[in-house]
Amino acid sequence: MMKIVSPKPFFYKGGEKAVLLLHSFTSNTIDMKKLGKYLQKNNYSCYAPLYSGHGLSAEELLTYRPSDWWKDVLNGYQLLKDEGFKNIAVIGLSLGGVFALKVGQELKINGVVTMSVPIHREATFLQKRVYHYAKGYKQLEGKNEEQINLEMKCLKNISIDSLVEFQQLIDITMDKLALLTSPIRILYGELDEPLYKESAEVILQSVETNQKTMKGYPNSKHLMTLGSDINDVNKDILTFLNDLIW
């Protein structure tokens, strides 16, 4: 049986301006490493928290809830404050983008970047995502097909209460978009599901700030920070950050 090395939070220290980087659901901080290194080279300090249960098995992941992951986000924001950073921007991908919107609604923030954010997701869809993640994780562990099938069958009996809470978190955050008054850049991949372009348009129309822009990337799927348009995505994010009032 192979032992999987658990991902960790990362803190890339650069300049006096700080960026909180928030990864996606069932993924981990690897989503944000290339962007973090790029921003560090351009004089930004970046911290990426790892949400509880992420990077572990699906069975362990489902023992945590979005309220736990939100605490991880708040702790990441506080860590930057405790390190002496007075000015913070937030960048999030997918679930991280939902959290970035929530940060923008509730905390003092200089700017927000969202990527691949859904305005709604059913718990049943999220459950399928967990199953897909579970199967891949078990294969990485080196388990045989029979063992994987047996464990997958057991997984289907585990409560999806945390995923129902996740669905509600998205709905509540989208209902409060008018509370977001910070500058925002909304990004989506043209090769992703059409939902994400539609969601980007809804977010653009609903936030209260006048400093808001949206852009689609022709060669990008869901994980935009690791896709074919990575150089353009990174440059556009840097331009947005450089144009903020810090």
Score class of each variant (00 low, 15 high):
94 S>A: 14
117 V>G: 10
76 G>I: 10
162 S>N: 15
80 L>S: 02
112 V>P: 00
98 V>M: 10
64 Y>D: 06
151 E>H: 03
144 N>W: 01
28 N>F: 06
32 M>V: 07
137 Y>S: 08
92 G>T: 07
94 S>P: 06
112 V>K: 03
123 A>W: 10
144 N>L: 04
31 D>L: 02
37 K>G: 10
141 E>H: 05
155 L>K: 10
46 C>Q: 05
55 G>Q: 04
148 I>L: 04
44 Y>S: 09
91 I>C: 07
152 M>L: 15
144 N>A: 02
159 S>W: 05
80 L>N: 01
148 I>P: 07
41 K>S: 15
54 H>D: 02
78 Q>G: 00
134 A>Y: 08
70 W>A: 05
106 E>M: 08
144 N>K: 11
113 V>D: 00
111 G>R: 04
52 S>M: 10
64 Y>G: 05
97 G>V: 04
60 E>H: 01
55 G>T: 02
134 A>D: 05
111 G>T: 03
82 D>I: 07
156 K>A: 15
119 I>Q: 11
31 D>W: 06
98 V>A: 12
163 L>I: 11
155 L>C: 11
120 H>Y: 14
153 K>V: 10
103 V>R: 02
151 E>K: 12
91 I>A: 09
145 E>M: 07
149 N>D: 14
157 N>S: 13
107 L>D: 00
134 A>N: 09
122 E>Y: 12
90 V>F: 03
162 S>K: 12
31 D>Q: 05
99 F>A: 15
90 V>C: 13
96 G>E: 04
157 N>F: 09
134 A>T: 11
152 M>G: 02
138 K>E: 12
155 L>P: 06
148 I>W: 10
55 G>H: 02
153 K>R: 15
140 L>P: 00
128 K>F: 06
61 L>G: 02
152 M>R: 07
135 K>D: 08
68 D>C: 12
142 G>N: 09
93 L>T: 09
81 K>Q: 14
43 N>Q: 13
123 A>L: 07
67 S>T: 14
49 P>T: 01
79 L>E: 05
163 L>N: 09
98 V>N: 14
143 K>V: 01
